[in-house]
Design a protein around this nucleic acid. Structure first.
Length: 501
RNA sequence: GCCGCCAUAGCUCAGUUGGUUAGAGCGCUUGAUUGUGGAUCAAGAGGUCCCUGGUUCGAGCCCAGGUGGUGGUACCA
């Protein structure tokens, strides 16, 4: 027996990172192409930025003030400058725009796709590297740009076959800011409490009115016994916020003056606040545009509980949510929830340059959306991808003959490979089976002498085998197999492939 | 980050109050029936019982710390 080696390295992917196989990559590719097509149809140009940025170019908007450096992978360059892996595609875009400001035609419409990295606790379906696909308009202050973003996001999900299975929820940060001003939380000194209030509102869909109420007041204790400190608001102020959250109930985009009046009626105590009021006016404008073009409340809706990023959004915010549930492995329904979102961030480019540059955009979580699409299709779909035709190598001295057969198939555009291992025929058949080969090409000495090849249709054969339980019958029938002259190889293989689409 | 649960073969899991050489099913490899995937039969490979330390005559089992996973929660740009 061999001695145990102690110098072996354990093969392992880093925590929260994953290898991706052919089927998954193919699904990503097809998704990405569909999304790209929509973006380009709307007149967006692709741009690519590096994975690494100088930390200060990303850093100011790290959201969690308690742990300003957590969440990001950073390293020090040889000139002592800190670099970080990008954690989204928006901050790098802001840098790109500021750096090339004179060259770019504005409003600048661009899209980006690629991996982003977050150094935080991974979970099921949640990785430390994942894909995003963003689109942004920089240099357009009008809410018409925000309306475009909502509509394009809807188009994108439509293109992915999700019509009727999602909703784009729209809100405006000015509305939330206005409410907080109205209850005396304006000004620098209340920034911390405003954050707490926004976080509480963001949890409405998960914790319900009751949970949010607790978080706005004293605080809330969760099932594990952990206590989350609340915002400490007075009861009448809490009511004002809850009143707002329910004001958009019915889930309609404000489509007319009539709706506007109704809404204003429901939020009467807040309408004197100018910030709040201008937020409402902006939403009406977005709503008018969307409705005019035919994006009704089936696709785009008003929802005052949408908060999104806590730091940099300044105006309209939107979130794409999948509305269907899927049965998980344990039978419990899984709600996929948010698969993307965005909003207006008028201050983000401005931190690189003296002038403010208005911008709006959104991001699609490709990895998450792909998981949802896969779950929607069911597990069988992924297994259907066909492998190459496998040419068996029965006679080791004549491997060149096998390679010549494969070459002929390739020359006609049929994916083909020769078995290059050292096992016998049975193992080679098994190999072809596992490769998901649709066809196996067999040429042993028998066939070669007669100038023939035997072709076996593995897909048809598998069906036939299911009906056979008797050994003799199996041997006898040689299911789904034909022997043809070598000259007809390509033609016959193509015919079999065609039968299976 | 905080709280809880879990860790035995490639996978899913057994493993008695702490007691000899740690098991099963599936999968994998090889062979038989034939030069052919399935079925059947036979044989075989595969384990630091997560790691380190402790208790004990003796630890897969008990204790402590660590690591990894998982379920909440926090955060989610």
């Amino acid at each position: 027996m061999t001695a145990r080696r102690t110098d072996l390295t354990a093969p392992r992917t880093p925590r929260g990172f994953a290898d991706r196989g052919a089927a998954e990559l193919a699904a990503t590719r097809s998704m990405v192409e569909k999304i790209r097509k929509v973006y380009e149809l709307w007149g967006f140009d692709e741009v690519e930025t590096p994975f690494l940025e100088y930390t200060d170019a990303l850093g100011k908007f790290l959201p969690d003030q308690d742990r300003p450096n957590a969440g990001v992978f950073s390293l020090k360059d040889d000139d002592d400058q800190w670099l970080s892996l990008r954690y989204d595609l928006t901050a790098p875009l802001a840098r790109h725009v500021a750096e090339n400001f004179q060259k770019l035609a504005k409003p600048y419409r661009s899209y980006r796709f690629g991996p982003v990295f977050r150094n935080e606790k991974p979970g099921p379906g949640r990785f430390r590297q994942f894909l995003q696909f963003d689109a942004d308009i920089v240099g357009a202050a009008s809410v018409a740009a925000d309306a475009e973003m909502c509509m394009m996001m809807a188009d994108t999900l439509d293109a992915l076959g999700l019509r009727g299975k999602y909703v784009i929820k729209v809100n405006n940060r000015k509305i939330l800011d206005g409410v907080m001003e109205a209850i005396g939380l304006g000004g620098e000194e209340n920034a911390g409490r405003r954050l707490t209030v926004l976080r509480a509102i963001d949890k409405l869909d998960r914790l319900g009115t009751k949970g949010v109420k607790a978080l706005l007041g004293e605080g809330r204790e969760d099932e594990s016994g952990d206590f989350t400190k609340g915002a400490g608001l007075e009861a009448p102020d809490i009511d004002k916020i809850l009143q707002l959250l329910t004001a958009a109930e019915g889930g309609e985009l404000i489509s007319s003056d009539n709706h506007f009046q109704t809404l204003m009626g429901r939020t009467s105590s807040l309408n004197d606040n100018t910030t709040f009021h201008s937020g409402i006016v902006e939403l009406i404008a977005i709503s008018d545009i969307c409705n005019k073009i035919g994006y009704n409340s089936e696709r785009i809706r008003l929802d005052f509980s949408v908060v999104r990023g806590l730091e940099y959004y300044t105006g309209p915010v939107f979130e794409a949510e999948l509305t269907f549930k899927i049965a998980g492995d344990d039978g419990k329904p899984i709600q996929f929830g948010s698969v993307g979102g965005g909003g207006r961030y008028d201050g983000l480019v401005g931190r690189f340059m003296a002038e403010d540059v208005p911008a709006t955009g959104f991001s699609i979580g490709v990895s998450r959306l792909q998981a949802a699409l896969a779950a929607l299709k069911g597990p069988d779909e992924a297994a259907k991808t066909a492998g190459p035709v496998v040419v068996l190598a029965l006679d080791r001295d004549r491997i060149g003959d096998s390679m010549a057969l494969a070459a002929r198939l390739r020359a006609e555009g049929v994916a083909a490979e020769v078995y290059l291992g050292s096992s016998g025929m049975k193992a080679q058949m098994k190999y072809a089976d596992r490769r998901k080969a649709p066809v196996v090409v067999i040429q042993g000495s028998d066939e070669r002498e007669k100038g023939e090849v035997t072709l076996k249709d593995l897909i048809e054969g598998a069906k036939a085998a299911a009906a056979i339980s008797d050994r003799a019958e199996w041997t006898e029938s040689r299911p789904a197999q034909v022997t043809v002259p070598e000259a007809r190889l390509v033609e016959e293989v193509k015919a079999i492939l065609k039968r299976h689409g």
